[in-house]
Design a binder for these strands. Structure first.
Lengths: 208, 208
DNA sequence: GTATAAAATGACCGTTAGTCATATTTATGG
DNA sequence: CCATAAATATGACTAACGGTCATTTTATAC
């Protein structure tokens, strides 16, 4: 009785196809303002059909954001390196992040937008912050840093994670798609990133 | 011939009335999703009339954001105090900011949303970032700090302003209206603010 | 009082997310 | 192979909303 399973596979496949097309569509000319009719057209499906696979437009963008998060998580997990101190890894971590935002600005902006969204974990039904996997990595690095003494330990891990993550998003949010504004004011964007690291790095090291 | 002037006064008055009503409306139950029809109703004006005073809905929210910015600027300008070091003033500055967000969360969220908006300065037609007056204050404090030696001088003022502002907004964005999420993860919000300051403060002081 | 200008109005329009009665395709079982 | 049922797909339709404009109302001028 493999029919059920085939159906399920086909259903997942179609979902992926829709998501694929949505990725191209929403990262294209019209951006996030592309309509569901547009998506229906470029998937060659009826509009109603789309709603059999996703409850609404928002959920499609969320699903894309999740894809982006997973991409980012994979890259970040390669940063974990026991031969390095916590502080060093934080620096690497930041580099990965910035590179990711440069290479995948579309996913970047989705992450910025949906980062705070709470999803239900499949199976367990447990509520999870969308970016949880990424924060996990950051947490591990910080933990190592506090253990090896390279990172200040007067602030809890969870709080430090929230702080670093928020600051980083804040900076990236300023940088993303605002080169012109910063230029008007004669601000060197490259130096914002560098400066951010410098401040954070000096701010994170444990006090003598 | 005071009729022209009276008309102008009346026009400005009506604009202010609309803005007043909009402030109450958009900070109320429906939030920013309240409609222009709602606004027409609660101003007791026809919908078309609203468009004689504002070109579109967005511009009303922008005008409210500007009101918020001015409110914040007034508070921040009281922080300027030559008897304190730059670093000390940065700390005060942050306190004002956080208090403002707690007391005026509606204006706070508007600032978070429209902070990047560029407006034309009246008369001069010069393009200005909406938050420019606030950034000016921050810049002055940092300048003083670099002069008195309390703040690191290996990063330019403009860049430091952009960094601190972005980080601060990032943190406030995380905190604003997300107490529940942070609670799920057992994060102490009070400590996020404190921690943010600690990190920034240690990160800003000039190296020995 | 009448003509003219300014201000106000709300019915109307275009757009878009989402729905649902209907049609089409696929599976079942005799 | 056919009849029936179940699953899947469809696009015309609805509701909601931002924004427009021909028309009406009000104020000013002479």
């Amino acid at each position: 009785m493999g029919i059920k399973e085939r159906k399920i596979r086909e259903k997942e496949l179609r979902r992926k196809e829709i998501l694929e097309a949505a990725g191209k569509l929403f990262s294209g000319k019209k951006g996030m303002d592309a309509t569901m009719d547009d998506l229906a057209e470029c998937t060659e499906l009826g509009k109603g059909t789309l709603y059999l696979y996703f409850p609404n437009k928002e959920s499609i963008l969320e699903a894309l954001a999740e894809k982006g998060i997973n991409l980012l998580r994979k890259r970040l997990s390669r940063v974990l390196d026991d031969s390095k101190t916590g502080v060093e890894q934080i620096s690497d971590n930041g580099d990965v992040f910035v590179t990711f935002m440069q290479e995948k600005p579309f996913y970047g902006s989705l992450i910025l937008k949906y980062e705070k969204t709470i999803l239900k974990a499949p199976e367990t039904e447990e509520k999870l912050l969308m970016v949880e996997p990424v924060l996990d990595i950051l947490g591990k690095i910080l933990e190592k840093g506090q253990t090896d003494g390279s990172i200040r330990n007067d602030i809890g891990i969870k709080e430090l994670v929230a702080i670093l993550w928020s600051q980083m998003l804040g900076v990236l949010n300023t940088l993303s798609g605002r080169k012109e504004i910063l230029e008007i004011y004669g601000v060197d964007t490259e130096w914002i990133i560098r400066g951010h690291y410098r401040v954070i790095m000096s701010g994170l090291v444990s006090e003598k």
